[in-house]
Design a protein around this nucleic acid. Structure first.
Length: 463
DNA sequence: TCTGGGGTCCTAGGACCC
DNA sequence: TCTGGGGTCCTAGGACCC
């Protein structure tokens, strides 16, 4: 713990030194669940949308054996692995662990660029100028041990001379692995790999390349630039060629500014009622406005997204002469945009977004003063919008609404988590990160002794 | 098998201006 | 009277990422 202030040198990585580190927490959401729920350790766990239209966010390695993977419809996962625990996800808990890990990354270097809750790049050259494979291996192993000790989770790490190589490397021997790629071995490592390993080459681009006879990164490196640009466009074509040749000058950039804020929802069944859709738009506009407000941002462009019954998706947008973060104003424009869309055949998903962001403007502050009250529409909850006779037309009911995996506490039995619910009952397993696997008990789903709570504390050194 | 929710970046065409 | 090129802004769509 030296007292010297580290010298920060942001910029393009030195292609001759392994100075870029990519960290990737293993099966992150599922791993946090197994950590906090002892009865699930060593068992298949699937985190994702549990409903009929949900998809898998993360599957534990035990579930992957059955063929369950990310982005797969949950319905299919259930067929492949009926005995897995299917959990809705606890983002509050994931966010807390993520912040902890990003904090540990900051002890390596101030140049940390998070990509998501479970991934980040770190530029080590900001604090070390004599990096070689040996030194960087020590640094990375120290970091991995620290993450495990403090959070109980394993993290895979890749190190290379660029973001591209670091990212590919971290994926190579997952889980719980460190892969350091010496710059002079980089070309030989990349050449035989599938083009699909390159971040940015997805299903469509991958197929296009393979159909042109470009199967490996080596094939791509030898390709003609003009041909690639014709096939994939200017930016993508020349960018991929550079990547394939090991050229990636992208710097590690901490603190990137948000470009848009949005909310969207897929309905459990398609909606056709315009008044109903307008009400949903209003609620999503509220959520977006709250998040804009918290971030001190406002934006000029309002966008709606409509996914139809057949999964075709369209966007409609409108740019205002001024920036706004007012829920009312966002809802107004979003509603007018929706008026121009045919919804008769059924809407599967609806979304509202704001882009063209800037720091909170004076106009918004004035608007806030003139109109400080929450939307008046709350007063006139129209009875005519109730669908299917449900008393809760606009979302899950407030009181039962137990979600699988949710943290709860019972007045008599203490802390636990919801294992399942339905037909007026809720099943709770009473255990926590530092207890042995716990017992299950069933309650009425409106039992006043049972309340939702925040994630359990994880105490380092106890695992 | 039937496809979430939150984003980023790129492309292309048309309007408009100089 | 008819032809131009460049730049910027806006809208729409699409690929991709975790």
């Amino acid at each position: 713990m030296g007292a010297e202030v580290p010298r920060v040198r942001a910029g393009r990585p030195d292609p001759t030194r392994p100075s870029v580190l990519h960290l990737d927490l293993d099966a992150f959401f599922a791993a946090v669940e197994q950590r906090d729920k002892p009865s699930l350790r060593g068992k298949p766990v699937v985190v994702g949308g549990p409903g009929g239209r949900g998809v898998v966010a993360t599957a534990s390695y035990e579930a992957r054996v059955f063929g369950v993977g990310s982005a797969m419809p949950t319905a299919r996962a259930r067929r492949l692995c009926p005995n897995a625990a299917y959990l809705a996800g606890r983002f509050e808990a994931y966010r807390a662990v993520s912040e902890q890990v990003m904090g540990l990354a900051h002890t390596l270097s101030p140049l940390v660029e998070p990509l998501s809750l479970d991934e980040a790049f770190v530029d080590l050259s900001a604090v070390h100028d004599d990096l070689d494979v040996e030194r960087v291996t020590g640094i990375a192993e120290g970091f991995r041990a620290e993450v495990r000790a403090r959070t109980g989770l394993t993290v895979s790490v890749g190190v290379g001379a660029s973001k591209l190589v670091a990212k590919i490397a971290s994926d190579l021997r997952k889980p719980d692995a460190l892969v350091v790629v010496p710059p002079q071995e980089q070309e030989a490592l990349l050449a035989p790999m599938s083009v699909r390993r390159i971040p940015g080459v997805g299903a469509v681009t991958g197929d296009r390349l393979v159909r042109s006879g470009l199967r490996t990164i080596g094939d791509l490196a030898a390709a003609d630039e003009g041909e690639l640009v014709r096939m994939l466009g200017k930016a993508h074509g020349s960018g991929l060629l550079a990547f394939a040749r090991g050229i990636d000058p992208r710097p590690v950039v901490p603190e990137r500014e948000a470009k848009s804020v949005s909310a969207e929802e897929t309905f459990s069944t398609d909606l056709t009622d315009r008044a109903d859709l307008t009400e949903r738009i209003r609620r999503m506009a509220d959520r977006v406005a709250v998040r804009l407000g918290k971030a001190g941002l406002s934006g000029r462009t309002i966008t709606i997204k409509v996914r139809r019954y057949d999964f075709s998706t369209l966007n409609r947008s409108r740019t205002l002469p001024h920036a706004t973060s007012s829920a009312k104003e966002v809802a107004l424009h979003a509603g007018e945009l929706l008026d121009g869309v045919d919804v008769a055949d059924g809407v599967r998903l609806l979304g509202v977004g704001v882009s063209g962001l800037s720091e909170y403007s004076q106009i918004d502050l004035l608007a806030e003063i003139e109109d400080p009250l929450p939307p008046v529409e709350d007063v006139e909850e129209p009875a005519g919008l109730v669908e299917g006779g449900s008393p809760h037309p606009y979302g899950p009911p407030a009181s039962p609404g137990w979600r699988p995996g949710q943290d709860v506490v019972h007045a008599g039995f203490g802390p636990g988590w919801v294992q399942g619910s339905g037909v007026g009952r809720v099943t709770v397993r009473f255990e926590g990160p530092h207890t042995p696997p716990g017992r299950v008990r069933t309650f009425r789903d409106d039992d006043p002794d049972l309340t939702a709570c925040g994630p359990p504390a994880y105490l380092p050194g106890d695992a």
